[in-house]
């Protein structure tokens, strides 16, 4: 990803090649790059453009590419008419609570799995990987029955519990990799000095794997934030419905109000854009290392 010292001669050679001039190959490469970027960006740009139009503009035939006038009316409507703040608040609470719980539970577990010679560790690791493969609907069906029987349906607690449990396997798996990459010497000398295991985890290992914890937290947050299926099955009223479920309500309840729907969609995507922009290194590291180790 970033240029390391060994890469420098290679870069110099490439630069020399660049100086040779524009080749047909180079033109093709740039065309592919530009085409890929345009295809990636344009559906999202269209979502943003739609959210900034008034209703007459949205239903214009033929389609107008640029809005006649930019209005924030759809964003206001989303809050005043569709009660988006309730969905937003639920989503924020569920996502943050899940991230906190997942990190608190996953760090000691990953540490124990990476550093203690646990009997059965291999079995646990393979179960973690199988959990990654389970379709969410296979979990949603029995969870609905279980939460119905203990009266937790349609509560934020149920959502946080379900998300915490379902995001833990990937989180433990990612963190194990980061801990295994640490040299053991520091922990050993701390242990010689009489530090307890808890202290080693909190004061020594956690700061050292801070990027790993960051990557795990961001990935857990986004997957919880984006989840539709668990929220759709476990919540039935506005008391616990999250944004993705709110989006389905735009379809069924009111016909489809495309302008408001687009505004809600844009608001939902904003945290993702923030994390992609400011934490892309962490995200790529987490996604790729999780994939490669899988």
């Amino acid at each position: 990803m970033t240029d390391t010292v060994q890469d420098r001669p290679r870069i110099r050679r490439r630069r020399a090649k660049l100086r040779d001039g524009i080749t047909p190959g180079l033109v093709i490469r740039y065309l592919v790059l530009i085409g890929t970027v345009l295809l990636t960006v344009f559906p999202l740009a269209w979502l943003v453009l739609t959210s900034l139009r008034n209703s007459a503009d949205i239903f214009a035939v033929p389609v107008r590419v640029l809005p006649e006038a930019i209005t924030f009316g759809q964003y206001i409507a989303v809050f005043s008419q569709y009660g988006l703040n309730g969905y937003l608040w639920n989503t924020v609470i569920v996502s943050i609570a899940t991230v906190v719980l997942v990190i608190l539970l996953a760090v000691p577990c990953a540490y124990a799995m990476a550093r203690f010679r646990l009997p059965g560790a291999k079995v646990i690791v393979s179960i973690l990987l199988i959990m990654r493969m389970i379709p969410v609907v296979a979990l949603a069906i029995p969870l609905f029955a279980v939460f119905a029987s203990i009266g937790l349906l349609d509560t934020l607690t149920a959502l946080v519990m379900a998300h915490t449990a379902s995001k833990l396997p990937v989180a433990i798996w990612l963190l194990m990799g980061f801990i295994q990459d640490l040299p053991k010497e520091i922990e050993e000398s701390a242990q010689m000095d009489g530090a307890s295991t808890l202290r080693i985890i909190v004061q020594i290992v956690s700061p050292l794997i801070a990027p790993g914890i960051g990557a795990t937290a961001v990935i857990t947050f986004l997957f919880t934030w984006n989840d539709l299926l668990l929220a759709l099955t476990l919540s039935s009223s506005e008391a616990s419905q999250t944004l993705p479920v709110g989006l389905t309500n735009f379809v069924s309840q009111f016909g489809i109000d495309w302008g408001a729907m687009s505004a809600a969609g844009v608001l939902m995507v904003i945290p993702t854009l923030i994390f992609v922009w400011f934490a892309q290194g962490l995200l790529v590291k987490g996604l790729v290392s999780g994939a490669v180790r899988g």
Binding site: T40, P43, N226, P244, M261, S262, M268, V276, L283
Partner: peptide, 17 residues
């Protein structure tokens, strides 16, 4: 950076869009 956006945004938003 831009390529990281589609895989990370909510599939629900992608579907509606």
């Amino acid at each position: 950076t831009l390529l990281l956006v589609p895989p990370m945004i909510a599939p629900a938003v992608v579907g509606l869009n």
